[in-house]
Write a protein that binds this DNA or RNA. Structure first.
Lengths: 330, 330
DNA sequence: GGTAAACATGTGATCGATTCCACAACCTAT
DNA sequence: ATAGGTTGTGGAATCGATCACATGTTTACC
């Protein structure tokens, strides 16, 4: 592989001069510059990023820690990150935590060993160890999806968005509104969306039956089971169901359809996420869409601000939502 | 940031000894080893990968070039790559080409400058410049999705899979089978799947109406338009439609449903990809599923073989398919 | 008791870049 | 003529690791 010394030798100058040409710094005579440029062109020389990183203590790379790439949410956020990072002249080192918190921490350390300039964490929870690892980090970081106190974060307006979806069901005349949520350990999707549901109902003077409120996991079968429990335990059958993710909502819709309920006339199903699933089902689910790509871009902005200023700055961005309750295909 | 010299000083040994402890090489006395290990633990020292890469001329990283991350196919392949790469102790440097061939080439060069140990390219086409860039590469590479002559490739049994889907339609008694394809410049999805359709029909003694064969792009609205053209131009309405992707099939199904055709009794829609969309639609689409995760893992295997042997070896892997024509949720 | 092998540790070069500093021309103003 | 600025160039240190080689100390065996 061609190095700066090869260029220097072939151009008949010192490697200092080559470096000056490369970085457009210091004084270089016209002839020297031309000679160096010619040799670089001939050899197809590309400076080694490693040597540069070692010397300059910056890598022009940001680490991105994700829980599974193959979900629509994650991949859309990464898409946004990828675009913004590229624009800033940086690159992505990807680390997949496969939903294991230990892996998240392990990867933070690994990324530090790679001396990336910053880390973007797509967080799934706010476990103490993760918070701690985040604080111990010697490099800038930004978190997407959860609100960590001591770190810049991009958060989704979960409470507002979930509230808006539920209020829309209420506005459509629904009064027996069921709920399929996830565990409260997930602050954003679990706790905040549930609170929004409870508050919206309370606000409208509705008291839900206990059976209408169910807790599930994150996969579709889990949504189906929750819907089955709801139907089995309830006294009055709901005329609407709000599930905290589209996937769960899809599971619920399948169950209600199988049991012969007419959708959406008898029971309107609503989810959250604005995923393709929601639009492609028939009838389409009601849902709320986050601009995930924008969230990714925003995370990069928060990170770059820290990298460029050299200071660990804590800033929050809140990503808004959009209600989708018509077939967006038309 | 802590370096090997800091460890050496604090442990009262030379950096060589620290290096020996780190790499479990050469002779180290029990006391020296213990002292070093203690200091490493206290300081949380992690060796710099850059210094290592520079010295050892290997990075323990593989570059992955993708066209847009936010499609199910891509993200599932990347998921597989991520798992396998992790297992081998390597990491991923991600580069997004956003479907632009120039970017693909640009990124190959960039990844070389980062001195990655190998490159995995999720290829969208077989343009001459890409082929050329691939040949000029000084480091091992593996391609997923297209068959490049001079590179190890993981290819999907497109012809066989598409043929199987169509034959299944025929076996179900369908005789007026429409087709929604994409441009032939895409060898795998465009050309091979179309050939499979034509051959399967020919084999069954069916001659399709010209209007039954339509070409579309890759997005859902494009599939809808193709279906509309089909219905408008045809003499006899098809009793089945085979689209080369699930997304296009979803578009077609929407159109046929809107026009009042009973699905699947009057018209059976089939796609390819085995995506979630296919399963969540009602009725579900017929489709064929590739083990994309496995394809990603396989690509890593092909790449690692080259990296470890130090030789550029050309090997082909063919990924099989699975027919999905029942509601896979049940 | 002497010599060779095994054990233990350190010195200095090296990887490929950047950058501080020294030095040499050459010009210009006093 | 001399001091001082501008321009152009290269030597050598540096970043953080690995490794060939040198060197010193034990242990083992005849």
């Amino acid at each position: 592989m061609v190095t700066i010394n090869d260029i220097a030798r072939q151009a008949g100058v010192s490697r200092t001069t080559v470096s000056r040409v490369l970085n457009a710094s210091g004084y270089v005579s016209h002839e020297a510059r031309k000679a160096v440029e010619q040799v670089i062109k001939d050899t197809g020389y590309v400076p080694s990023e490693h040597a540069k990183s070692l010397r300059l203590k910056r890598t022009k790379a940001v680490g991105v820690i994700i829980p599974r790439i193959s979900t629509e949410t994650t991949s859309r956020i990464v898409d946004g990150i990828s675009r913004a990072v590229e624009e800033a002249g940086y690159h992505i080192l990807l680390a997949n935590s496969n939903l294991q918190p230990e892996k998240e921490i392990e990867h933070m350390q690994f990324l530090e060993s790679r001396r990336v300039d910053g880390i973007i964490l797509l967080a799934t929870n706010r476990e103490a160890r993760v918070t701690e690892a985040l604080q111990n980090l010697k490099i800038p970081a930004a978190v997407v999806g959860q609100d960590f106190e001591d770190a810049s974060s991009v958060i989704f307006k979960d409470y507002e968005a979930a509230g808006a979806v539920v209020r829309q069901l209420i506005a459509a005349g629904k009064t027996r509104i069921g709920f399929i949520g996830v565990d409260d350990s997930d602050e954003a999707v679990g706790r905040r969306r549930r609170l929004a549901y409870e508050d919206a109902l309370h606000e409208a003077g509705i008291t839900p039956e206990a059976a209408w409120v169910q807790t599930a996991g994150f996969d579709l079968p889990s949504g189906e089971k929750a819907a089955e429990r709801m139907l089995q335990e309830c006294v009055e059958v709901p005329d609407a169901v709000f599930a905290v993710t589209d996937r769960l909502a899809a599971g619920a819709q399948h169950v209600f359809q199988q049991r012969g309920y007419r959708i959406p006339e008898e029971v309107q199903i609503a989810g959250m996420g604005g995923t393709e699933i929601a639009a492609y089902m028939s009838p389409p689910l009601w849902t709320a869409d986050y601009q995930y790509e924008e969230a990714g871009e925003e995370a990069v902005r928060l990170l770059m601000e820290q990298i460029q200023s050299g200071k660990k700055k804590v800033e929050k961005s809140r990503i808004s939502y959009r209600l989708l309750n018509t077939d967006r295909l038309s």
